[in-house]
Simulated scan of single mutants.
Amino acid sequence: MHSNSPETTRLYSNLHTGQEYVDDLLHCGNERRIYRVLRLTLPTFYTLWDWCLEHTQLRSSKTRRLSIEEKLVMFLWTMNEGASNRVVQERFFHSVETVSRCFHEVLDALLQLHREIVRLPDESTP
């Protein structure tokens, strides 16, 4: 009888992938649901996606098959829910390392956006 060691046993069943959740959310047609989950409207989400694509290094991951959309949704969902890494793993079916890496990739991209749109007052402003 063959038993799987903890190292070789799959962590998730893959009945629903994170990308399937993202596709369902973004194509559900329910603006209230999208706003409730992302705290952004769908047009605003795609404006952010376009900006990230044009102005940052945020890209889809070929090895893990993570789209930019999934990375953005994971980040926004995490921030909206105040979710821990472990909760995000469970929702999107990715490892600790993948969730952490994606979070920081999106955070770095959004910090670039911050530098572009936030203008601090000059020194002559009282």
Rank of each mutant, 00 (worst) to 15 (best):
residue 1 M to C: 04
residue 2 H to Y: 04
residue 3 S to T: 08
residue 3 S to E: 09
residue 4 N to T: 10
residue 5 S to H: 13
residue 9 T to V: 04
residue 10 R to F: 13
residue 10 R to H: 14
residue 11 L to Q: 09
residue 12 Y to D: 01
residue 12 Y to M: 01
residue 13 S to P: 06
residue 14 N to R: 15
residue 15 L to W: 03
residue 16 H to G: 03
residue 16 H to K: 09
residue 16 H to Y: 07
residue 17 T to P: 06
residue 18 G to C: 12
residue 19 Q to Y: 05
residue 20 E to M: 12
residue 23 D to A: 04
residue 23 D to G: 00
residue 24 D to G: 14
residue 25 L to S: 05
residue 29 G to Y: 02
residue 35 Y to S: 13
residue 39 R to E: 08
residue 42 L to E: 10
residue 43 P to H: 09
residue 43 P to R: 11
residue 43 P to T: 03
residue 44 T to A: 12
residue 45 F to M: 04
residue 46 Y to C: 14
residue 47 T to N: 05
residue 47 T to D: 05
residue 48 L to R: 00
residue 48 L to G: 03
residue 48 L to S: 07
residue 49 W to Q: 02
residue 50 D to K: 14
residue 52 C to M: 04
residue 52 C to S: 10
residue 53 L to N: 03
residue 56 T to C: 06
residue 58 L to Y: 01
residue 59 R to P: 00
residue 59 R to S: 07
residue 60 S to F: 03
residue 60 S to P: 00
residue 62 K to V: 11
residue 62 K to S: 11
residue 64 R to L: 13
residue 64 R to W: 05
residue 67 S to Q: 04
residue 67 S to R: 01
residue 67 S to F: 03
residue 68 I to T: 11
residue 69 E to V: 11
residue 69 E to M: 07
residue 70 E to V: 07
residue 71 K to H: 04
residue 72 L to N: 02
residue 72 L to T: 08
residue 73 V to W: 00
residue 74 M to Q: 14
residue 76 L to Q: 08
residue 76 L to C: 13
residue 77 W to P: 00
residue 78 T to I: 04
residue 80 N to W: 10
residue 81 E to S: 08
residue 83 A to R: 07
residue 85 N to A: 10
residue 87 V to W: 01
residue 87 V to Y: 06
residue 90 E to R: 06
residue 91 R to L: 12
residue 93 F to H: 06
residue 94 H to G: 02
residue 96 V to N: 10
residue 96 V to M: 04
residue 96 V to C: 08
residue 97 E to T: 08
residue 99 V to H: 13
residue 101 R to E: 00
residue 102 C to G: 11
residue 102 C to N: 12
residue 102 C to A: 15
residue 103 F to I: 12
residue 105 E to D: 13
residue 107 L to M: 09
residue 108 D to P: 00
residue 110 L to M: 12
residue 110 L to P: 05
residue 111 L to M: 06
residue 111 L to P: 02
residue 112 Q to K: 11
residue 114 H to F: 12
residue 115 R to P: 02
residue 116 E to Y: 05
residue 117 I to N: 09
residue 118 V to T: 07
residue 119 R to S: 05
residue 119 R to H: 05
residue 119 R to V: 12
residue 119 R to G: 00
residue 121 P to L: 14
residue 122 D to S: 15
residue 122 D to V: 13
residue 124 S to W: 00
residue 125 T to S: 03
